[in-house]
Amino acid sequence: MTTSEPIGDIIGDYRAFAELQRHRLLDRGVDIAGYPLSHLAVRVADWDLYVHQRALLERHATANSENLWNGRPISLIVLAEPLTVLDGAPLSVIELIPPVHQRVYRMGLEHLGVVVGDDVDDFARTHRAALSGQQFQSAEVEPYYVLFEDFTHVKFYRRSLYEGALSQGARFEGFTHVENWVPQRLVTATGPNPLPR
């Protein structure tokens, strides 16, 4: 997809993605107008594409934090210039996620993070019928989420993913990468299989 816009050329039409997710939420009775945005998450199908997209995104960034989570590196990339989506809302963080190893996920633009704040639990109770569940990623990061039919999500956070990472000791000082990581082997009912490269 050519968007003649650097970040869009790398990750796809993020404005259209955010707008689609907002309309889907409105159809379910959830209005995110006025809430700040946390991040956009992008999943890639193989390790080589992850490394390539990470390098391209870092050309437009001031820092990253890459750590192992669930056995694989995930990079939070802080853009030098915030993206603008949903009527001008700024968005400064891209979560880049390499190949999956457990279940079906959407490749490309996969989820939009919304910061609800300290009222996130009340928000979840109010919109219980629209929500699909809650993730327990860490003591600091426990988003509620809506899963759509195309395996994309919107996730609702108490604090932004960036703030959650800082509270867990992440440092956003230049660019660092997990070293000596080798793509895992996927163990299935038919035996071990290498992850896509």
Score class of each variant (00 low, 15 high):
residue 189 A to N: 07
residue 39 H to D: 13
residue 192 P to V: 10
residue 138 S to M: 02
residue 17 F to Q: 08
residue 7 I to H: 01
residue 185 R to G: 12
residue 182 V to G: 01
residue 67 N to E: 11
residue 196 P to M: 10
residue 131 L to C: 01
residue 11 I to G: 09
residue 167 S to G: 00
residue 192 P to Q: 09
residue 87 D to E: 15
residue 179 E to T: 15
residue 35 Y to F: 15
residue 70 N to H: 09
residue 94 I to T: 02
residue 144 Y to H: 15
residue 8 G to C: 11
residue 59 R to M: 13
residue 5 E to F: 07
residue 17 F to R: 00
residue 79 L to S: 03
residue 156 F to G: 01
residue 117 G to V: 07
residue 83 L to N: 12
residue 64 N to R: 01
residue 26 L to P: 08
residue 61 A to M: 02
residue 32 I to Q: 03
residue 62 T to W: 01
residue 20 L to A: 15
residue 131 L to K: 00
residue 11 I to H: 12
residue 79 L to T: 01
residue 64 N to D: 14
residue 30 V to L: 07
residue 35 Y to S: 08
residue 7 I to N: 02
residue 195 L to Q: 15
residue 57 L to F: 03
residue 29 G to F: 04
residue 33 A to G: 06
residue 36 P to S: 09
residue 44 V to R: 14
residue 70 N to D: 13
residue 152 T to W: 03
residue 109 L to M: 08
residue 197 R to Q: 06
residue 43 R to F: 04
residue 12 G to K: 04
residue 120 V to W: 08
residue 54 R to P: 12
residue 10 I to S: 01
residue 178 V to P: 11
residue 23 H to L: 13
residue 61 A to D: 06
residue 61 A to R: 02
residue 149 E to S: 13
residue 164 G to C: 09
residue 93 V to L: 11
residue 13 D to K: 03
residue 106 R to W: 07
residue 187 V to N: 07
residue 42 V to A: 07
residue 115 V to Q: 00
